Amino acid sequence: MAEAAVLKPDDRAWADTLSRVRHDVYHRPEYARLDAGSSIAFRYAEAGRVLLLPLLLRPVPDTDLHDAVSPYGYPGPVSNASSEGFFERAWQAFKDLLCTRGVVTAFVRLHPLLPVPTRPLAGAGTLVRHGETVSIDLTLTAEQMWSQTHRSHRNQINKARRAGVTVVFDDWSRYDEWIDTYHATMRRVGATSFYFFSRPYFQTLQSTLEDKVHLAVALSPSGEVLGGNLFFSYGGIMHTHLQATRDGDVRHADKLLYDEVRAWGRAAGATVYHLGGGVGGAADSLFRYKAAFSPGRQDFHTWRVITDPRAYDKLAGTPTPEALEGRFPPYR
């Protein structure tokens, strides 16, 4: 017998469902609470098979409606099922249930390392491939990972070490100084307001995720903070959440940080270190920079769903391929 439900973070069914499926830190209820908005998860169960998808509900201005969006990161659907028929039924239930709750659309960022069948996703909505992300296989030896690193990166990592740059882990007394560095980096690169996470956000991130979040800080020989890598490690999967270096000469501290973090992860028993991709999934300079650390590649998709077609028509008109594949939802 099938059952579809919307869960709140304090609902025991959220944690119980995660105990039955492979998942990541992005699927944890405590992570969902970090983002502004009303945190929920869609759960679908059928004959011992389950699916869970975390979401944030946002009010649609000047209406009593909402739309749904993934929390920041890669909190795409996770499941212990493999049958495409299961996912077809789950996504129909997803659309029906959200529609009854006044949700017009859903925008979902899929997890590159925890894929689900794509055909049912495309049948229920619009699946957009943005590009590739980069990952490092931490089951390799240190020598194998080093040999997969591009020669220019290896040279600069060695230069950083010869210059006396060191990396320390989980020295949270350096957290505030690194946060200042992060904000300065966002100003330097002209980042949008979305990426200017507040100091309370960073503090809540650490206190909420506890041993699932770590800080690697690169120090000059005199003890100055040159940069840092804030990363997640959970269930064998690691992600760089945010990395930043200060203005000026950082003596290749950025590349040394990635090298030291992957060594930390391998020693801690993690199996994969996900670096992410370029801006918006593009094969840009940021992607090429990450790609020089490893040949590991995965596709990155987003999924766009109209859950209430009548309400959507009133807000944005008849859906077109351009509207469904571009900025979504278009009424935002």
Rank of each mutant, 00 (worst) to 15 (best):
T105Q: 11
Y26W: 12
D62N: 07
G123N: 14
S70P: 12
A45T: 10
G85Q: 11
P77E: 09
A41Y: 09
T63P: 09
A36D: 14
A81R: 08
T118E: 15
L52A: 03
S38R: 14
G48E: 02
P29A: 07
L110C: 08
H23I: 09
P77I: 02
W91V: 04
L34C: 10
D62H: 13
R109F: 11
K95T: 13
L55Y: 11
N80S: 04
S39K: 06
R58N: 08
F87G: 00
V50S: 10
L65P: 04
D64Q: 05
S82D: 14
D64K: 06
L113V: 13
A81I: 11
L113R: 07
P59M: 10
E30S: 03
A41L: 11
T118W: 03
I40S: 05
D24P: 03
A122F: 03
F107G: 12
Y44R: 04
P61A: 08
A45N: 04
P29W: 09
P112L: 07
F94P: 00
E30L: 10
A47H: 15
Y72K: 03
F86Q: 02
P61R: 13
R33M: 15
S39N: 04
P54F: 08
S83C: 01
T63R: 03
D62R: 14
T100S: 15
L121K: 07
L56S: 05
V25Y: 07
R109K: 15
R49C: 09
F87H: 05
R119G: 09
D67G: 06
A93K: 02
R101T: 09
P59S: 11
E88C: 02
S79K: 04
R28V: 10
E88H: 12
A47G: 07
R43A: 10
L113D: 04
T100R: 15
H111S: 14
D24G: 05
G48M: 05
F42P: 00
A45K: 12
Y72A: 06
R20K: 15
A68M: 07
A32P: 06
V60G: 09
L53S: 02
V78K: 00
E88Q: 14
V116E: 01
D62A: 15
H111C: 12
L65I: 11
R58W: 07
